[in-house]
Design a binder for these strands. Structure first.
Lengths: 232, 232
DNA sequence: TTGATGCTTCGGCGCCGGCCGAACCATTGA
DNA sequence: TCAATGGTTCGGCCGGCGCCGAAGCATCAA
């Protein structure tokens, strides 16, 4: 393959209106589901599926399966840079994030919910962000985190049962789980479950019946502020 | 026109093999005749004519009639930049272990070439690295550099025409341009052009015919060592 | 289990656009 | 003026690819 052909193949991928529409949506830097991208581009799921796999093949996108959903995001900042420089030629700039309709539909679920056995939504992200920001949590490999020494102390002070969490040796300790509403990773795995358990045990949060939705109590709201430095 | 359509239209123009071939040839920053471009792309003159007028219409190319000939060149350095950033993506297609065939096949192009009107490849990177390492060049914002006081002196000593470079006020002075073969930024903008001009004027480098490839002369190799402290 | 949902694969249709031959226009040189 | 050369316009052919319906697989909820 020549340099020229490589150029034309990459450009041709971006040159289809449907694919360009998907790339534009993904310029917000977050991950979107295949159906989200299909709907946004105004095409059927099966057509979108073909487009998406071609772009993954060409290393424009990265895919990650989670449950029944498949999330796609831009493969690298270089891809975003190339798209931006093409948009610059057209005299336009990248559009900021545009929220999907589904995103607005369920504000409570979006705010806080359980994802299996750990916290997700804005609260789950707030906890995750707080831990990384304070240096308690750091990346370990592409899909995991690990607690730092200060993180161990912090969890102990909070009453998070790290001993039991570590005993579940067959399970990932601190896995990155992609949050569908926030489109960013939150903590899952044994640590995520232990943290969620702490929230329920200390009365910071309550499960709603027959729903994944979780209600943050007043004391929970205060705890987020005092322990995590977060206001939600 | 939406930004999405603008993106796809520009990308689609670059996405045709024949047009991509023309754009690649024009990446040398020089003007080429229509028949030259047609022959290089392996198509007939009438087909090329259609492609060329479409690219002029889209402001990718600028045309100038001269006698019976019609010369085409890239419309702006922004076009060159967009093409270069697409080529950077094309380099990531295969598995990281094996570079693309084109990458292996074209060692001279990788070593030194023009990117529109400035130097790219290993030599372009060596110059850029030398300037930053010696404190002559420092980052200014996310995508630009600026010359330090010592950098001004250094350029004067070298014979780089900074006055003319600064006069082109509509143009970025020292822009970061992502090098597709080295995967790191080199100097573009008015300063990049002035430096390249110095290399050609002092006989340190020579353009090869009908190619973006640049040959470093023996004196150029010595100059890289003495002035820039680089061995290539 | 059963049904619902998300995603993919397969097959066939339709059309957009790249291609060239032929003809035409413009500039040059004699 | 006439031929030669470079470039463009027009018309028609045809292949590639974007599209969807149908069907199939995987996951989740009850």
């Amino acid at each position: 393959m020549t340099t020229v052909n490589a150029l034309s193949e990459i450009a041709a991928l971006m040159g289809d209106p449907a694919r360009a529409s998907m790339l534009s949506l993904l310029m917000d830097g977050r991950a979107h589901t295949a159906s989200d991208l299909a709907h946004n581009a105004g095409i059927t799921a099966q057509t979108a599926s073909g487009h998406l796999s071609r772009m993954v093949e060409a290393n424009l996108l990265a895919a990650r399966a989670q449950g029944r959903n498949r999330f796609y995001r831009l493969a690298s900042s270089e891809v975003a840079h190339a798209i931006e420089s093409l948009m610059a030629l057209a005299g336009t700039r990248a559009t900021p994030a545009s929220k999907s309709a589904a995103w607005r539909r369920d504000p409570d679920l979006r705010f806080c919910r359980t994802c299996y056995d750990h916290l997700a939504g804005q609260v789950g992200i707030a906890v995750t962000d707080s831990l990384t920001r304070q240096g308690h949590l750091e990346p370990k490999g592409p899909r995991d985190w690990q607690l730092t020494q200060s993180g161990e102390l912090f969890c102990d002070k909070l009453g998070v049962d790290l001993g039991t969490a570590r005993e579940a040796s067959s399970r990932h300790f601190a896995r990155q789980c992609l949050d569908w509403s926030e489109r960013r990773p939150h903590i899952s795995g044994a640590l995520g479950a232990a943290i969620a358990d702490t929230f329920f045990r200390r009365g910071w949060a309550e499960r709603l019946r027959r729903s994944r939705t979780v209600r943050l109590t007043d004391s929970g709201r205060r705890a987020l502020g005092s322990h995590f430095g977060a206001t939600v």
